[in-house]
Amino acid sequence: MTQSIASNDSKRIWNLLGLPFRKKPLVGVSPSDVVHHENKWRLIRYRSRPEGLAFRTPVLLVPSLINRHYVLDLMPGKSLAEYLVAQGHDVFVLDWGTPENEDRYLTFDDICDRYLGRALRLTSAYSERNQAHVLGYCMGGILTAIHTAARPGRVASLVQLAAPVRFHDDGLLSAWMRTPSFDVDTMIAAYGNVPWQLMQSAFHLLRPTLSLSKAVGLLDRAWNDEFLDGFFALETWGNDNVSLPGEFFRRFARMYRDDDLVRNAMTLGGDPVHLADIRCPFLAVTFEHDNIVPWRSAAEVMTLISSEDKQHIHLPGGHVGAVVSKSAARGLWPQISGFWAQRDR
């Protein structure tokens, strides 16, 4: 025991000294092909396992617009996409890409209706039932819920991963977005797209002590190479943010401020969006210590949809850690895969 502690201590010191020279972790490396690209977004299909697919309905993963898609394929052993492929699913992911200055004019409908619709249409064309299972994560979940409510035809089932629907909650983001003196229109006039630096600062302020806490955590577990690889992979992803198209954000902010989803005041391509129109099999996943999306605002969806086949899983953990951690590989991922496996036809 004493020998093991001493060995950990020397490994810790060795690893800390070697941090500047440590190889950068490889992120988003599961083998994949781009099956469609348009403007800046791409539809990526992961290569299936050597023994072939086990399920007939493909899966479309829809991440948030403000982060890179590879959080769902972080690194070998910590990748939801890799796990799903290994189970025999045909997995697609929507990579929103990096908006350029001209994309300030992209509207909510362009992204949530046209782009997401096309990705879903292309994915579902790979199945004989012409449908796909859809998973929306965080802001991606808001988009998938809206799209499914307005255009349910190609959605075989919907999994909402830490995706809020009630925006008037007790979280910091909600309080900031609803501050009357914060003028969204002026920001868009000034910058065009919402700069990622501004959003990243806001996310840092959600827990101002987080950087210090991470540094202490790093010191504490520096002896563990696996932890260090995961830590730096997550840091790489966390600092690789993208700006948000201005017109899209104008509508998104209004939806947030007016709580349009629960008030049935949202539209998509001119059609009304009522969450009660979601009737497909439904799984909501929320996290107890999620400080970005308070779990109650994500769980609310269970009371708003009309699906008879619906489940809610509430897990410990935070907004990102609970999706890419070792415990996710043991708990969350098998539950998601199992949900789709039971509804495969």
């Binding site: 910091l172 309080a175 009357p180 003196s181 914060f182 003028d183 002026t186 920001m187 959600l206």
Partner: peptide, 25 residues
């Protein structure tokens, strides 16, 4: 978190940010 949620912090911060943005616009 409690401090950052109070209107005493939010309103002036929002106004300051908006003023800077207005200048840039």
């Amino acid at each position: 978190e409690a401090v950052l949620k109070t209107s005493a912090v939010l309103v002036p911060s929002g106004a300051l940010l908006s003023a800077i943005l207005k200048l840039k616009a």
